[in-house]
Design a protein around this nucleic acid. Structure first.
Lengths: 192, 192
DNA sequence: CAGGATTCTTGTCAATGACAAGATTTGGCT
DNA sequence: AGCCAAATCTTGTCATTGACAAGAATCCTG
């Protein structure tokens, strides 16, 4: 066994994400992760100052992956409603599949210095939304108004459905019904 | 000093809610609460089986208070848009004023037996929303469709704006602009 | 006014996050 | 090649915490 693990940092992140799904963010223990990776209980400290620093790194990774998925699922040039539908499904799907990660991403207890990095990662997502609204306006499909404001609020609406769906708090409403209704309501709300 | 504290349970809840705002849900320590109340470190165990049981009780209390505020701020009989506006402002206001509590209420790590109680408390809120939609439909102000589905989704949309606003994640959008836009978008979406 | 239930206390345990100090390895610099 | 600093990992330690056990003080019901 090599004295140096090699890529402890990446392995810690991977193990932490797995643990996130089983024991939750608070249930994660640095010592337990270290044990799983066959490493001493103090080794993680050399890669993450804090337990929170590890979680922050996980959150940043989550934002990046979410943005990737949204962007790759997008179809620029297609009608507004089609793009809105795709984005909504992607977002809700991500939330349902990775609820603990999303909770981490939008949690409030990040390190001050990480907040900056998280903000940048999150900004990528809003960019896509603003672009969507602006394109819709240019095509005369979306009503007038500050595209930034409309994008933020519309995204927040979809976000609300996503988080409640992820936590099973939609009162028994089937997921596809909830999504379809959401797209419909948001679309009508934004219509010209 | 009386051997019996008298109303430890209530005092624990009150102290816990205060701590919730300062150190967060995870930062709360039963032992610390006990110290603050001048009571032995094991005393809380006789009132709350668990640390989670305490948090669950706090969450139930939160749902009750939120429902109270929404109901008391409601104006049945008035036009749909007016009621929607009032409810949205109440909800967003509650979220901004009590973000940690709301996070607790909608968290996923409750005790199984508490989930039932929480569900009942939360159901009160959806009742108001369904009533609002149904009334709007009767008045011809809201489009047709299953009122339950429309209510859940619309509530989820408002909820999304509320949580993001509470966490300062609206990208610098002024709160009143966000609220007004939200009411506008939801209203248009639901319009007949 | 007795006896059981309630409330609270002290004592204890394992787990954890964080810190300190030292060992091993790596990699750059001469 | 060789050396030294930095990076990586280790053992050791500490205070805090949640949970449990067993016993003391108090309350209350019959």
């Amino acid at each position: 066994m090599a004295y140096h693990h090699g890529n402890l940092r990446d392995d810690l992140l991977a193990a932490a994400e797995t643990a996130l799904g089983t024991v939750g963010a608070d249930g994660i223990s640095l010592r337990s992760l270290a044990r799983d990776l066959g490493v001493s209980h103090a080794a993680p400290a050399h890669h993450f100052r804090d337990k929170q620093a590890l979680l922050d790194a996980l959150a940043v990774e989550g934002f990046t992956r979410l943005a990737d998925r949204v962007e790759s699922g997008d179809t620029p040039g297609r009608p507004f409603r089609e793009r809105l539908d795709a984005m909504t499904r992607t977002y809700v799907g991500f939330a349902v599949d990775h609820e603990p990660l999303l909770a981490l991403m939008l949690g409030t207890k990040h390190h001050p210095d990480a907040t900056e990095e998280l903000g940048a990662a999150a900004a990528r997502g809003t960019l896509v939304a603003v672009d969507l609204i602006a394109a819709g306006q240019r095509a005369g499909e979306v009503r007038e108004g500050d595209p930034y404001t409309l994008a933020i609020v519309a995204a927040a609406q979809v976000h609300g459905v996503a988080t409640l769906a992820a936590r099973g708090l939609l009162g028994g409403l089937p997921l596809d019904v909830a999504i379809s209704t959401t797209v419909d309501l948001v679309f009508r709300g934004l219509s010209a």
